[in-house]
Nucleic acid binder design. Structure first.
Lengths: 133, 133
DNA sequence: CTTGACCTTAGATGTTACTCTAAGGTTTAT
DNA sequence: ATAAACCTTAGAGTAACATCTAAGGTCAAG
């Protein structure tokens, strides 16, 4: 199949597929006489693998590492995949914690402010951000 | 005070302060004879305002809008600040929801995998990412 | 009076993940 | 046969937020 067919099947744009190729994540099995990229069903699996990896929060660099495991399983061990997964869980937990801190600060600010058409002269959101800590 | 003093007091690098100036967020009140940036205590307040705004999750562009309110309060109303705050809370809630989805997917993958020195041939993390959906 | 710390500028670089453009060649359907 | 749809490439642009570099000027202390 050509690139647009792969794009449709994996739900990734053709542009992005070429970009992934440039990064070495997804090389077409062969080229047609007219130099078009020709993909196989295996490439569809790989493309979806990349997509799911991204949906789990892995960067493209990390996805590249996971692909290396996938593409040569006998040369890798479970610990590699599990360690990456565990680290990512920790990383995501930290991000969630940070966002929750932001959220609660914002909620404190939100309830203080009347939100009306009054001049911002005494707006508690602004004055709280101004406050010298 | 000069830039390094402001940097220390606001806990922002001198580089970043110059960058903020380029974006129009924080202009020094005046320049010394030798063209050094001279800051006042008000500039320290503004620098800290920017820092706190960022800690609440506002981008520099949004921070710029908040600064415009702060710097000319009589021309603005509470609703502006409150709307920005409410939108940001929604935005952050969505980010948290997304991260939680990632987290639970990762946790499902993590418990399935033995994590040992076994070959990745049957690694359930890899095979789950490979699975055609 | 000189050394080291501090200051200046424009502009390049880095990160992540695309997204788009220009200029052109190929294929397919009517 | 010709128009529409598809393909190719290198490289530029975007977003967000810095961070660094080079090449040089200024200032305070010993």
């Amino acid at each position: 199949m050509k690139i647009s067919e792969l794009a449709k099947r994996a739900d990734i744009s053709a542009h992005t597929i070429r970009y992934y190729e440039k990064l070495g994540l997804l090389k077409p099995t062969q080229r047609s006489e007219s130099n078009y990229r020709i993909y196989t069903n295996d490439d569809v699996v790989t493309a979806k693998f990349i997509k799911r990896s991204k949906e789990c929060g892995f960067s493209l660099a990390e996805t590249s590492t996971l692909l290396a495991i996938k593409n040569d399983k006998s040369q890798h061990v479970c610990a590699e995949a599990k360690n990456m997964t565990s680290s990512k869980i920790v990383e995501i937990s930290e991000q969630i914690a940070k966002l929750k801190r932001m959220q609660s600060t914002l909620q404190e600010l939100e309830v203080l402010c009347c939100g009306g058409q009054e001049s911002a002269e005494f707006c508690s959101i602004i004055s709280n951000l101004e406050k010298v800590v």
